[in-house]
Amino acid sequence: MPGALVAAGLAAYPAITLQAAPLVVSLGGLAVALFVAGQALPLPSVVAWALGLLAIEYLAALQLRSAGLDLAAPAYAAAFFLCAELGWLGLEARRGGRLWPGRAVAVVSLAVAGAALGALVLLLAAVQMAGGALLTGVGVTAAVAVAACLAWLARRQP
């Protein structure tokens, strides 16, 4: 189960590098347990919840310690994406599905591209800018635009 190993690594990261509180670390433990259970049963929704808990553990560790920007966030995001993909590949393998070379290449490329885009976001966040309602509005508009684009793409599918 390579997905579970990556999930364990992701759960351990806030505890090791961010010195997260035991309660937060226990969230990571729960996430790994859910991930393994989701793979074993197999239940896709449980895997999705496990991924959500892993993200919550990471963000809670950052927020509770009021830490500055995490420079490893793009790498964490790429690992998080790989963990999700491995989880779903494991579920598909239980139903007889197999990874094909094109998809493997696409997954790795997406992880790298995601990390690169994440690094760009991190760079933008590191730039000292005066905040305000306008900038927040732009951010909200961008988020809504992303959601609207995805909704429009999803509607095109039969």
Binding site: A55, Y58, L59, L62, Q63, L69, D70, A73, P74, Y76, A77, A78, F80, F81, A84, L110, A111, A113, G114, A115, L117, G118, V121, L122, L124, A125
Partner: peptide, 11 residues
């Protein structure tokens, strides 16, 4: 914080 957005980007 930018980290949640960075996590969301690859997905």
């Amino acid at each position: 914080r930018p980290e949640p957005v960075i996590l969301a980007v690859p997905l």
